[in-house]
Nucleic acid binder design. Sequence first.
DNA 1: AGAGATTGTCATCGA
DNA 2: TATCGATGACAATCT
Length: 823
Amino acid sequence: MQDLKKYFTEGLIQMAIILSLCGVMVDVGLEPYLPASWHERILGPTSALTQTQFHNLRNRLEDGPGLHAKNVDLDSFFTARRLLGLVHSLDRLQVPPAELETWLVQREQDPLPVGLPGQASRLAREPPGIERVQLTSSLESRPLVLTLHEDADDEEEDKEEETDVHYHTVALNEGEEEEDTVLQHYCNIGREGGPGSSGGVNNGELPQNEQVSSSLQECLRLLEETFPLTEEQQFHDAGGGRGELELQSPGSEPLGSSILPSTNPFLDLELQWQDLLAIMEPQNNAGCDTSAFEDAQNSRATETFETLHQNHGVDGTEADLVMETWSQPGSLRPPNQSEMEPVLLPLTPTEELDDHSSASSSGVSGVYPLQSPPDHMDLLAQDPSPDLCLGRSAEDVMNRQTQDLVATPESSSSPENCSGDCTNIQEGNAATRGLYMSPSGDFLFDEDGIEDDDGLLSPLTDLIGDAAILDEISLLDMALEEGFNPEMTARLDEEGYLLREAAQQETARAHLQPHLGEDQVHPGDYQQDSETEADSDSGLSLAFSLSQASPCASEASSYSSSSSTSSSDSADESLFSEDEDAVELCDGPHMEMESDQEKKLLSGLPWHLGHDHTYHQPMSSSSSPSLPVGKMSTKQSRSSVRRNSALPYHYSSHTSDAKMWSHDERRARALKVPFSNELIINLPVEEFNDLLASFQLNEEQLTLIKDIRRRGKNKVAAQNCRKRKMDVLLGLNDEVSGLMRSRSRLLREKQEAMRNLQEMKHRLKMLYQEVFSRVRDGEGRPLNPVEHELRFELDGSVGVASSRRGRRTPLTKSNRKQRDKKK
DNA sequence: AGAGATTGTCATCGA
DNA sequence: TATCGATGACAATCT
């Protein structure tokens, strides 16, 4: 590399350039010594050694490739174009990769932040096209170059893109506070050379021969200034980068010494943009309005850097740090973007930038706007316009992945599949990021995008967090629309798994016990009751199904509907051990397990909120033999009723509930009450009366049954009452919050009104003083505004009244004031 | 051990 | 008048 550089700077290239300036196209034969990739990378497709398209075109038409006499009739555009190509080749090896930082420093020196297009700023003093290019050139954005083409050259839309690139470069340097005369000449050359160029900074109308001669002179002088600079640049490259020095002393840098190196990366990127132009040309021809996208890009970039400046405190120090990061020693060639990407990642050296990673990422993405729209979040939030041709790919990727995320929320939990289809948000975000960061379209998102802790990752993590939110939203939507299907239930992990497994076990047990006869468990009972419970608004899941003839089913139902009221206790079990046969009917311990599991599961399910006011229905669980009232007297004997009514006492060992129930249960048992408490409590009044009438009950039994019924109902009522009370409290809390917000808003409005009032008073005072300064009394003396006051009559006339003596003495009329004014 | 939360129960009121 | 629901108050129990 050094040899090549020396080769360029010390010998043949100078001669070749001079010969070229004289009109002779020289092929120095460097290509055979360079690999194709090197040639393309170092020299670029438009270097002096690689003929431009214009030359190629002309050579094909005229002389063909190789040495040829320069046609003096060529327009100055070709001349300027080729001369600039020479400069490209000269500085090809002198690239300090620090353009963004330089830009930042320049922007930091600007007292005003980078304004929006309509915002006044330093840039506003420049022609619109220049301004926009200056804004966007730091981003090194091809669309922004086109923006220049659009804005600054509306009248020369047929101009070649290379000319725009030159404008780009020129505008960049014009935007710098250090005006560089050499590049200003470039500007002149480029604009003078452009056919039909107008509206530029230097809108010269020189004849072509004069233009050529002046261009030659300018270029010669430029060469004289440039070559010593090249060696200096070597020194700077070896010492840590030139751009760093520029940044550290932006105001003291000699003018001519800083421009070329700073423009080199742009020139190099210019070449890349030319390639990109060729690549993107079909898209442009496809009817896509690139200008819209460019404007969007421009505005986004502007907003991004505004945000960076205003909100994130990017100061010169940070810019210097950034610059240092960019200016890696020994980076003699323009950094490959893909290679620069790892360098870009730590580009946020401060916590501010890290914290505001969106802006950071935007800022970094602004370096490669083609690959990286400035604000990823905007892309997520915004509906991609069909006009955004260039952005469509990236946005489509992101939107598609976002849609995939929403559509397949469960996929978000598999970030290890990044190499595959990007269907989760991490992949999507990383892919988006990688898509933006990689100039070659390679997705560099896989590892860095997820594991990097830099601020650049924050958008990713934010999106991941959003992904979780979206995931939940999706689940909720699906649940609302379709209910929780098995897949969703499976996604609910252990809860759903255990719940289903319990139901399955219940079903299997029902099938394995055919002797239960009509007491067989219906598989759907469990889930049905669960759904009943879930649907129950206030916990009044009076799901006492009269059709539930099975104790087991009823038990399952009771367990599903109530977890805290698994009735009976060990005492009851000992007391009523004569009903052991009933124990065989159902798997008591299993049911208990289900109850506990379900108790935990229900509390862990997503719909189980922190304050669950879904009060349990103890009646439905206390006594499983939920005999249908209407059928009881006809289908079952009283003994069976008694047996069934005694069943739950043997199954539940839920001590607390059992103790609660044991009181009434024991009393009911002691008094030989023939039916369960559940039946007593939940039956309607008429059926309950029929039930009582169907049995021969003594007074004590009737009293106990009524007490049980009353207490049971009151218990439910108390639960509902508490639920309502809690709801009222929550509602009041929300209302208080809303009122607080309203109060704050009103206070702000009041303050604003007060400010306006003060302003009005101040203005009125000033106006008053002004009026009195011009009013004179009858003797020509000025009136004291303290002692007098203005009086506005209904007829529109204005007089002056004395406020000291309490009487209004019209001293002067408006016509008098007019006369005074005339004096 | 004690505080707070939860839950059941009673008394009462009104529909 | 009986019934039922709502609710405050109290106590037992749980966490």
